[in-house]
Amino acid sequence: MMKGIFEHKWSVIGIAVFCSILWGSAFPVLKVSYIEMQMAPDDIIAKIVLAGIRFFIAGLLVLAFLLITRPKRILVKRKQFFVLIILGLVQTALQYFFFYNGLAKVSGMQGAILSSAGTFFTVIMVHFYYKNDRLNWQKIIGLLAGFTGIVAANWGEALQFSFHWDGEGYMILSGVTNAIATILAKELATGIHPFAVTGWQLTLGSSIMLVFGLPQMAAGAITFTSFGWGLLLYSALLSACAFGLWYSLLKFNPAGELSMYKFIVPVSGTVLSAMFIPEEHLNVFILVAISMVAVGIIVVNYKGKKNEKSMTTPRAS
């Protein structure tokens, strides 16, 4: 039954769009969380701890759901557990170290656009990893459109370009680690139930963050209010839901087809940021940026079935 749901054309589209909107909502939610919890923009450790709490809760939620519905699937072999540690380190700990600290230095709208770099870096990386998935003119045009949009997101109304490694740079690095994790998950997590992959990698990755961050966090670095807890729990739920559903889609569908729907993430993230963050407003540069990024993502993934067929054979080293 599960396989049927995740293979039916319209249910796949609906789930992919839903996941993308959920991921897009993370940008304004996190920006508002920083304000509500009175977190200093330069406090790296506090953000590591906040991310660790969020993804630890998310991981436990996924594992609890799997334990209730498919208890035998929660068990993994020793070799598979090592793979899940690697995924947790890259997909959760490393990616969200860059994401949480980078987003503190940029607007929610910028963050939504810059993080889409992961889609474009995935296209570049598979060119070197998969034997029959090389760059062509279609993909090059899509990449140029996407990276043009990313550059446009860093221009302000005063026509001044802004780029800082601990802000915009971290957001792009978050996309790079996401691209790496996408390939790792596709190649290494075979034979593991998608919800087990999600739950374990979130739990293990977040544990690394908490073990590292908690002993170093200054007292009062995070002020937990009722609203703050609500935002944190929503963030955990969206992660558990979106990651679980997305890994399930990846199990039964070509990654190339699914990647096309990720154009919704920067669009929804930008629009929701403009709606819920008082000081953020859409301008011509942001509109150009999300348009170029959306076009780029669609173009590089056009005819995903053909592209995905080539993603089954690793390129010889």
Rank of each mutant, 00 (worst) to 15 (best):
G4L: 12
H8W: 10
I15Y: 01
K31C: 05
I35D: 10
P41V: 06
D43V: 13
I44S: 05
A64T: 07
F65V: 08
L66G: 02
I68W: 14
P71Y: 08
I74V: 11
L84D: 08
T92K: 13
Q95C: 05
F99W: 14
G102T: 01
G108H: 04
I113D: 03
I113M: 15
F120W: 05
V123Q: 14
I124K: 14
V126L: 09
F128Q: 10
F128S: 12
R134W: 04
R134M: 04
W137C: 10
I140V: 15
G142N: 13
A145H: 13
G149E: 11
I150T: 05
E157P: 02
Q160M: 10
H164F: 02
W165V: 11
E168D: 00
L173A: 15
L173R: 11
S174N: 15
S174P: 00
V176Q: 11
T177Y: 05
L188Q: 13
A189Q: 11
T190I: 10
T190E: 13
I192N: 10
P194K: 07
V197G: 06
Q201W: 04
L204T: 03
L210E: 04
A218F: 02
A218V: 04
A219V: 09
A219M: 07
G220Y: 10
A221Q: 09
T223Q: 10
F224P: 00
W229I: 14
G230Q: 15
L231R: 12
L233A: 01
S235N: 08
L238T: 14
A240V: 07
L245I: 13
Y247S: 09
K251A: 14
P254C: 14
S259Y: 05
V265A: 15
L272I: 00
I277D: 01
P278I: 15
E280R: 06
H281G: 01
H281C: 03
L282A: 06
V284M: 10
L287Y: 03
L287F: 14
L287M: 12
I290N: 10
S291Y: 00
M292P: 01
G296I: 06
G296M: 02
G304I: 05
